[in-house]
Simulated scan of single mutants.
Amino acid sequence: MTSSWTNEAAIRQRDATATREAMEATSEDGDFAKRHLVNPVLERLLGDVHGRRVLDAGCGNGYFSRMLARRGARVVGVEPTGSMTAFAREREVRERLGITYVRADLARLPEDTGPARGPFDAVVSSMVFMAIPDWRPAMRSCVRALRPGGRFVFAVVHPAFEGLRAEWREHGEYRVRRYLEEYEIPGPVACDFHRPLSAYLNELASLGCRLREVVEPGLDPVVSEGARDAVPGLDGYVHLPNFLVVAADAP
């Protein structure tokens, strides 16, 4: 647990700040960073998902669930906020990709939660754990949902380079004053929570998972050059990783 925050409070905050405009704008493949830095790595680490049962843990507006379904996966998306769950279900009614969306808190996901019941061949959780105060039970839920040897892939904002673009825009480099302790990171939409990288990897090890790969993606300089004027500070993504993506296999 971080500070006095509860999962319920964090969920309420994100639910209250999720706008229809923002969900529509990111409904196909996320925002710029997800499109160029996170999604390609998630897809590679998950491998061929055709015919496989995949849990999208903390699916938000469902964009990555839809990307997986279009690649032939049988997808269940779990999301705690009412606004995003409703948006994802609305898109499913229109597109009929065969995705089931469940509204639930990952940290309190019972083993018999209907469609979200395991086992799954793979679980993916993108940009979720750093947004959850009580994140360890959420990670345990993800691993518990897997079949033996199933693939678990998660992405978080890199704990060593949070706020990279803003720092690069202001200073032309990244500056950090503290790293080892846990603390809140207020944001324009909701609060995130800093923890050192070791917290995530040590929890993964404690759950008996076998680490397969750690990726710190950097932006292609050609992409950066083309979008530099529209997105100030983008060069920071070329030189430093703003995201951390981890793949592991369940025991």
Rank of each mutant, 00 (worst) to 15 (best):
G98R: 06
E184S: 06
R147V: 05
Y200E: 01
S4G: 14
Y200K: 01
L97G: 04
P80H: 06
N39L: 06
G218A: 14
L180N: 07
F87L: 13
L37D: 00
Q13G: 04
C59H: 10
H158V: 01
L106W: 08
T17F: 04
A107H: 09
E170T: 09
T113S: 09
A33R: 15
F243H: 15
I185D: 01
R53F: 12
E111H: 10
G208A: 03
L180M: 09
L68S: 06
P115A: 12
A199Y: 03
E225M: 10
V93A: 15
N39Y: 08
H36Q: 02
Y174H: 12
V49S: 12
N202I: 00
N202D: 14
V231I: 15
L164T: 02
M67E: 13
R144V: 03
L146F: 03
D220R: 07
V143W: 00
R96C: 07
V128W: 00
R108N: 05
R52F: 11
H50C: 08
R44K: 13
P251V: 09
M23C: 12
E182R: 03
N7Y: 06
T100W: 07
C142Y: 12
L207V: 07
V246A: 07
D31L: 07
A160M: 03
L244G: 11
C142T: 02
D229Y: 14
M130F: 07
V41L: 02
V156Y: 06
A18L: 05
L204Q: 01
F154T: 07
A22I: 05
E24N: 10
Y183I: 02
R52E: 15
G149I: 06
V156Q: 06
V143C: 01
F193T: 10
E167T: 08
S198W: 06
R108Q: 08
G149L: 09
R175E: 02
R210D: 03
H36I: 02
R210A: 11
F154V: 10
R175D: 00
A227W: 14
R165E: 01
E92G: 05
M130T: 02
T17H: 07
L42T: 02
G30N: 02
E184H: 03
